[in-house]
Design a binder for these strands. Structure first.
Length: 473
DNA sequence: TGAAATGTTGGGGCG
DNA sequence: ACGCCCCAACATTTC
């Protein structure tokens, strides 16, 4: 007699129905599928914005499941305990999930797998978050890749699984397990008053992700290579938040790009390259997890970065009041929209770690708290890339001049006007929103004068270069 | 997926 | 006609 017991589909950062290998396989068995999300102690450590964004994603995902006669069961507590409880309550004999690659998730999932297997439960992990499993990409020497370009060359021609359609139906159990109410989790609480501002700029859901991809391919794909660098322009894909929570698969993005490349100019691989940067970040996090917490190059442990999180320079940077327009505009964009243009991320990271000589971890942690598209691997890699301590990093002496960069990438100052109110008679509404998004205790006043630079590009450059010159290694 | 200083080249103005 | 200077436009080097 065939097995008719339910399968628990444990969702984590894969909030989609389409192109979901684990869900597809579960539905194909014909057995009842019970979708579950567990707010476990590890998930509780998410930064405020990521937590808020997770709440939006879960709400939409639960609706999408509901539309298909299924239901998302929400549980809070240690993952293993909650899964065991669900097994007992539902008679499930299997727990399936999509793999994650950060060390904490790997440790948790290994433990869950060992314990449940011990109890005779069928546990299976599936791919889906990445196009190229970290262990499947090996350099010529048999090791992992430490430089982007060789990795790109190794994977660019690979076959990527074509995206699969969502399952026709998700078999329901005869009885649904108890579920927490999402609202009771108050996942937006840590965001404080910023949540109301950011919410207006975030579209969660798989449907929104698919629409965004279509619009990007239609409107911006041809010009991506140049316009992706212009912060005032909709030149990027804006898919990061969806990719971060798995509302869309990288596979689908890859194939959409391949199709567009076939139709267009020959030199249009830039977007797929960016997808591979994401894979590269995961590749590094998997093979060298210390990238999340320590200088990837240990020499840099002795570099004299400031580490005091209460340093007034750090506060000015966080508040978007450094007096450097590009830096401040980018930081304010982050508080209002929950995201920051990639060019801005490079500029503010360079300014914090070089001009202000502050440790990249301060910036990384702050981004983790403020970005709705936060991704553990990309965030760590990006900061170490900027700081110079990471693999394939920009050389430390490559100091961005935030004024020159502004001339180059925001020549008409559209970006600055969009995000900075001080000094303008009629500031833009987006610039004013910043004052409603940030903490009241910052006590900011849109009528105040725009600050003079706390560190000018010239001074900062000199400080950074002489520190590098005298580096203790 | 820099910037700034320094070096090189070549065209044009001009005595 | 020629050499000289100036300087813009690149190219190379250095941090």
């Amino acid at each position: 007699m065939s097995d008719t017991s339910p399968i628990l589909l444990w969702f984590r950062r894969d909030l989609r129905l389409g192109d979901h290998p684990a869900l597809g396989a579960a539905c194909a068995t014909g057995r009842p599928v019970i979708p579950v999300f567990v707010l476990d102690p590890q998930t509780e450590t998410l930064g405020a914005a990521a937590r808020f964004r997770l709440g939006m994603g879960l709400e939409k995902f639960a609706e999408a499941l509901g539309d298909r006669g299924s239901r998302l069961s929400l549980r809070r507590g240690p993952a293993l305990e909650e899964l065991q409880r669900l097994i007992k309550q539902t008679g499930a004999s299997a727990v399936w999930w999509s793999r994650l690659y950060d060390p904490a998730s790997i440790a948790r999932d290994s433990d869950v797998k060992a314990e449940l297997t011990e109890q005779g439960i069928d546990t299976r992990s599936f791919g889906g978050h990445l196009m190229f499993e970290p262990w499947s990409v090996q350099s010529g020497a048999g090791g992992y890749y430490k430089v982007f370009t060789p990795m790109w060359n190794a994977v660019r021609g690979r076959d990527v699984d074509a995206p699969a359609a969502p399952p026709g139906r998700i078999p329901a159990p005869t009885q649904w397990p108890q579920s927490d109410k999402l609202a009771d989790w108050a996942l937006d609480r840590a965001m404080g008053r910023g949540a109301a501002v950011v919410r207006k700029h975030v579209l969660a859901s798989e449907d929104a992700a698919l629409d965004r991809l279509d619009a990007f391919i239609e409107d911006a794909f041809d010009t991506y290579a140049e316009r992706r660098n212009l912060p005032a322009v909709q030149g990027t894909s804006d898919l990061s938040g969806h990719l971060s929570l798995g509302e869309i698969s990288p596979h689908r993005c890859w194939h959409a790009a391949l199709r567009a490349e076939d139709e267009g100019k020959p030199d249009t691989q830039t977007f797929r390259k960016e997808l591979v940067w994401r894979e590269f970040a995961y590749h590094l996090m998997y093979h060298t997890p210390h990238i999340l917490t320590e200088n990837w190059k240990p020499d840099w442990d002795r570099f004299p970065w400031r580490t005091d999180p209460d340093d007034p320079r750090v506060l000015a940077w966080k508040q978007g009041r450094t007096g450097i327009a590009f830096v401040d505009a980018a930081m304010r964009e982050m508080y209002v929209t929950g995201r920051m243009h990639n060019r801005g991320r490079m500029i503010v990271a360079s300014y914090l770690t070089k001009h202000l000589m502050c440790h990249w971890k301060i910036g990384m942690d702050w981004f983790a708290d403020c970005l709705v598209d936060w991704d553990p691997a990309s965030n760590a890699m990006g900061w170490q890339w900027s700081a110079g301590s990471g693999p394939d990093a920009t050389p430390y002496f490559r100091v961005f001049n935030p004024v020159t960069q502004l001339d180059k990438f925001d020549p008409d100052r559209d970006y600055v006007r969009r995000w900075i109110a001080e000094g303008h008679d009629t500031p833009s509404s987006t610039a004013m929103d910043y004052f409603d998004a940030v903490p009241r205790r910052w006590n900011l006043d849109p009528g105040a004068a725009y600050p003079d630079p706390i560190v000018t590009p010239g001074e900062g450059r000199q400080a950074a270069l002489s520190a590098y010159e005298n580096r203790p290694f």
